[in-house]
Design a binder for these strands. Structure first.
Lengths: 157, 157
DNA sequence: CTATAATCAGATTACATTGTCTGATTTAAA
DNA sequence: TTTAAATCAGACAATGTAATCTGATTATAG
């Protein structure tokens, strides 16, 4: 449609934020992430696999496996995630496609854009974290009821 | 690929900026715009037609016709162009797809993003304008040489 | 008035992104 | 050691965007 991160980026960012809410080193199965964020399971799975290769998150195979945040979210830049998913091709050219856009001859959004992407860390303020932790807890619970039993997240050893 | 305005938006913005360089009420044929910006003629044509319908630019049909800026570029917001081309659907939801993103529970880029899109006017600083005016003049000249004769831009009456 | 140069409009094709499906591999628990 | 639950991997289908093509309409210049 219009202006946006690619779905892959968007989903990747959401996935990382979700893992951040769960806390460092908490292993969470894709199933839960996909259900909560309403993203096709196989799709988010692929994306998270890619982020694993880039050491932004980690994964644990086999039963009770899943993904977990590999470093604190206030150390993860939006830039890191976007580059890990889609490469840095986009950042080598002007957002508006303005020819020869540069510090000297900037397009109308030159400075603000670089700043937005490169200086933003993927962290939420504490008020927001609390709000979503509550929500996630409720949601996991309701998902749990709909399914036979269920995999709970647990700490990595 | 990654993060970006849709091509339609990007081209539309470039078109408006190009018309801005030519000055208010200067009629410029699509051919020139397409050649200079290296955009498929029919594609940019369609996009500019859309912007005409939204009164951001104007058009003049027939021989010596073309498009022209309908109001000063410092009155045209990035937001206006994007909405004219792709609708405001995108602005009704979070850029990151963060659920329930709001002023109270903001995603990591909530404030900066709104500001970037809604407060930016499609104008270039005077240094940049001078730089590109020179460039455009040279380019038009070289295009002119490659073709038999050529349509020059002229003022609307 | 006629020829020409431009916008306008719709249908169609090409391509990239998004999403789905199937199966292999790994690992923990019983 | 067997079973089940998870990641991992690749091929494929569906969708939407980008680009092209063809032709109609409009208006100016001569």
């Amino acid at each position: 449609m219009a202006i946006i991160f690619s779905k892959k980026c968007e989903y990747g960012i959401q996935g990382v934020l979700y893992l951040a809410l769960k806390g460092l080193n908490t292993v969470t199965p894709v199933e839960e992430i996909a259900a909560h964020l309403d993203i096709p399971r196989e799709f988010i799975s692929k994306i998270l696999q890619g982020l694993t290769a880039n050491k932004i998150i980690g994964s644990k195979k086999g039963k009770n496996g899943g993904f977990f945040l590999a470093k604190p979210s206030n150390k993860i830049k939006l830039y890191d995630v976007v580059v890990a998913i889609d490469g840095d091709g986009i950042f080598s050219q002007c957002v508006l496609g303005f020819p020869d856009c540069s510090g000297e001859y900037p397009c109308p959004v030159h400075d603000e854009w670089s700043k937005l992407i490169k200086d933003t860390y993927l962290m939420l303020n504490s008020q927001t974290v609390d709000h979503f932790k509550d929500k996630v807890t409720r949601k996991i619970h309701s998902i749990g009821l709909k399914k036979k039993k269920n995999a709970k997240s647990r700490s990595v050893n």
